[in-house]
Amino acid sequence: MTLLVPFVPSPPEVVEEMLKCANLSKDDVLLDLGCGDGRIIKAAKKNFHVRMAIGVEINNDLCLEARDPDVEVVCGDMVLLLEVLMPRVTVITAYLSTRTNEIIQEKILKLGRKGLRIVSHDFVFEKLRLKETRRVKAMGLLGWTEHTIYCYEL
């Protein structure tokens, strides 16, 4: 099942707060679902020194833009790839949509393991255990807007 979500870039302040909320360490393997231009995986590797940062993106142009020697970018369908990538992952980040989160959370609940952390920008995962909510004001295409970051842990 291919899920298409429009690319809306997360402002730098939101990326930073998402990664802080994930409580990253050098041992973490981060997976960004729908990584767009790769800003989250690049920041996780550069600023938080995670062991590995992986992005999944279905748009070929964005997939090429996200590529960087320090991160891994997989071009393809996140729903299909989640099953393959999940055993390696300790943290998942996402800025998707309500419907996409509903589908992804079922996979996370099925494949995830205790301690897996999930951070979502603006869209909730209804069935996951919410650990914390943060709000961030950032300048975007429409001026200053407030963003909500949802932090979960299995």
Results as ranks from 00 to 15, higher is better:
residue 19 L to N: 04
residue 22 A to N: 11
residue 23 N to D: 15
residue 24 L to E: 14
residue 24 L to A: 12
residue 24 L to F: 12
residue 25 S to V: 00
residue 25 S to Q: 06
residue 26 K to D: 14
residue 26 K to G: 14
residue 28 D to H: 01
residue 28 D to F: 00
residue 29 V to L: 05
residue 30 L to K: 13
residue 30 L to E: 10
residue 30 L to V: 15
residue 31 L to V: 07
residue 31 L to H: 13
residue 31 L to C: 09
residue 32 D to Q: 03
residue 32 D to A: 00
residue 33 L to S: 04
residue 33 L to D: 08
residue 34 G to K: 06
residue 36 G to F: 06
residue 37 D to F: 06
residue 37 D to V: 04
residue 37 D to M: 04
residue 37 D to A: 10
residue 38 G to P: 06
residue 39 R to C: 07
residue 39 R to P: 02
residue 39 R to Y: 00
residue 41 I to L: 06
residue 41 I to S: 07
residue 42 K to P: 09
residue 42 K to F: 02
residue 43 A to I: 01
residue 44 A to H: 04
residue 45 K to E: 09
residue 45 K to A: 13
residue 46 K to A: 13
residue 46 K to H: 08
residue 48 F to R: 04
residue 48 F to P: 12
residue 49 H to G: 14
residue 49 H to F: 09
residue 51 R to Y: 03
residue 51 R to G: 03
residue 52 M to L: 12
residue 53 A to R: 08
residue 53 A to N: 07
residue 53 A to I: 04
residue 53 A to M: 01
residue 53 A to V: 00
residue 54 I to Y: 04
residue 54 I to H: 09
residue 55 G to I: 01
residue 56 V to R: 14
residue 56 V to G: 00
residue 57 E to S: 02
residue 57 E to M: 01
residue 59 N to L: 08
residue 60 N to S: 13
residue 61 D to Y: 12
residue 64 L to N: 04
residue 65 E to F: 12
residue 65 E to T: 10
residue 67 R to T: 07
residue 68 D to K: 02
residue 68 D to R: 00
residue 69 P to Q: 05
residue 69 P to D: 11
residue 69 P to G: 05
residue 69 P to T: 03
residue 69 P to M: 03
residue 70 D to K: 08
residue 70 D to I: 02
residue 70 D to E: 14
residue 71 V to E: 06
residue 74 V to G: 00
residue 75 C to Y: 14
residue 76 G to C: 10
residue 78 M to I: 08
residue 81 L to A: 02
residue 81 L to I: 02
residue 81 L to H: 09
residue 83 E to G: 15
residue 84 V to L: 13
residue 84 V to D: 14
residue 84 V to T: 13
residue 85 L to Y: 10
residue 85 L to H: 07
residue 85 L to M: 05
residue 85 L to T: 06
residue 86 M to W: 06
residue 86 M to K: 04
residue 86 M to I: 12
residue 87 P to W: 02
residue 87 P to G: 07
residue 87 P to I: 01
residue 87 P to A: 03
residue 90 T to C: 05
residue 91 V to P: 05
residue 91 V to S: 11
residue 92 I to F: 10
residue 93 T to E: 13
residue 93 T to V: 06
residue 95 Y to G: 03
residue 97 S to E: 10
residue 97 S to W: 12
residue 97 S to N: 07
residue 97 S to I: 05
residue 97 S to A: 15
residue 98 T to V: 15
residue 99 R to I: 10
residue 99 R to G: 11
residue 99 R to L: 14
residue 99 R to K: 14
residue 100 T to D: 14
residue 101 N to E: 12
residue 101 N to P: 02
residue 102 E to G: 11
residue 103 I to G: 10
residue 103 I to A: 12
residue 103 I to P: 03
residue 104 I to H: 11
residue 104 I to R: 01
residue 105 Q to V: 06
residue 105 Q to Y: 11
residue 106 E to S: 10
residue 107 K to Q: 15
residue 108 I to A: 02
residue 108 I to C: 06
residue 108 I to D: 09
residue 109 L to T: 05
residue 109 L to Q: 13
residue 110 K to G: 15
residue 112 G to S: 05
residue 112 G to K: 07
residue 112 G to Y: 11
residue 113 R to P: 00
residue 114 K to W: 15
residue 114 K to H: 12
residue 116 L to Q: 09
residue 117 R to L: 01
residue 118 I to W: 15
residue 119 V to R: 10
residue 119 V to G: 11
residue 120 S to D: 07
residue 120 S to I: 02
